[in-house]
Structure formats: structure tokens, C-alpha cells
């Protein structure tokens, strides 16, 4: 029985075994390869997407539970014209990106944070990223960039 989803605003149906991780459906069926399947145990956060507005590790999210759910992935953040979102633009401006594998998940974790807390403190941002591993950057620029979006004056 197919599962009906709204993925990045588009109604989609997927006929995959119910325990198939959402990450695999996004990547293999919808070719949304932004979310990365990295650890498969929910600790690295590279596969983070928003399910009904809440952050979820899509590697541990069985597609069978998602009938009618609204999924948002990193591919939705930038404007369709290609312009980066303010958060993405801040990451670019701060030269935060290195290998880039963790960013799709980090951007979605931060998007989820900002939707519940428009002006988080530095510690709140850091804690909100406790489920996102970045092996390249040492995190500080990511935090700086995030703060520059929500508290432009504090980050200067």
C-alpha cells in the first residue's frame, strides 16, 4: 500500500516496504540526496529533515509511519531561483563549509530551532547541534553564522 507524503510541498506517493528509512526513500526514490545516510543510528544528524515541522533523523524514521506527513528537506531552503536562504548565505559568508557532508542536516536542525526560538543564545545553538556531527570545521563558524542570522548585532 503506497504511503502518501508531501515532500517539499509536492504530493508524492511511495510504495516501499514500511520499515524503509525515510532517508532511503528521499535519496533513492525522490533523488533528494541532500540528506546523507551516514551512521544509521541517529547520532550524527546528517540525515536530519523536518517531519511535520519537527526535526527527525530520517535514517530512523520508517516510511510506513508517515502517511499524510509533510516532509521538508535541505533542498527546500534555497529559493527556487537558486538564491540561498539567509541561513545558508550566512554559512557561505562565514566560510563555514568544508567537506559539506554535515550541512544538510545542520541546516535543518537550525531551521527547526529557529522555528521554535527566534533568538537563541549561543549555548542554545550549540546544544541544538548536539545531534549533528561535523568532522571538519570544529563547529565555531557554524555557530557564528547561525547567530549572525538571528542576532546580527551580537555576532559582529
Amino acid at each position: 500500500m503506497p504511503v502518501n507524503l508531501v515532500v517539499n510541498g509536492e504530493e508524492r506517493a511511495v510504495a516501499a516496504p514500511p520499515l524503509t528509512p525515510l532517508a532511503d526513500v528521499l535519496r533513492d526514490t525522490f533523488f533528494l540526496t541532500g540528506a546523507k545516510h551516514v551512521c544509521g543510528e541517529g547520532f550524527c544528524g546528517a540525515c536530519t529533515v523536518l517531519v511535520d515541522g519537527k526535526p527527525a533523523v530520517s535514517c530512523l524514521t520508517p516510511v510506513g509511519l508517515l502517511e499524510g506527513s509533510e516532509i521538508r528537506t535541505v533542498e527546500l531552503l534555497a529559493d527556487p531561483s537558486g538564491d540561498l536562504s539567509p541561513l545558508q548565505a550566512a554559512m557561505e559568508r562565514h566560510d563555514a563549509v568544508q567537506c559539506g557532508m554535515c550541512f544538510p542536516g545542520i541546516l535543518m536542525s537550525l531551521t527547526a530551532l529557529f522555528e521554535t526560538d527566534a533568538a537563541p543564545s549561543r549555548d542554545t545553538v550549540r546544544t541544538a547541534l548536539a545531534g549533528n556531527i561535523c568532522r571538519c570545521t570544529g563547529y565555531e563558524r557554524i555557530v557564528e553564522a547561525a547567530l549572525s542570522v538571528c542576532q546580527p548585532e551580537a555576532a559582529q
Binding site: 533513492d28 540526496t33 541532500g34 535541505v74 531552503l77 534555497a78 557561505e92 563549509v97 559539506g100 544538510p104
Partner: peptide
């Protein structure tokens, strides 16, 4: 000069196709 990275934009958009993303 603090030149920006030319690959940052697509890495942030989730468009960059790493080897694991290639089919």
C-alpha cells in the same frame, strides 16, 4: 585574500553529489 569557496553554495543547497550520492 579571504576568497570565498566556489563549492559552498551547492554544498549548502544539498546539491553537491558526493560519491555516495552517485547512481
Amino acid at each position: 585574500a579571504d576568497l570565498a569557496r566556489r563549492d559552498a553554495g551547492d554544498k549548502l543547497r544539498g546539491r553537491t553529489r558526493f560519491t555516495i550520492d552517485r547512481a
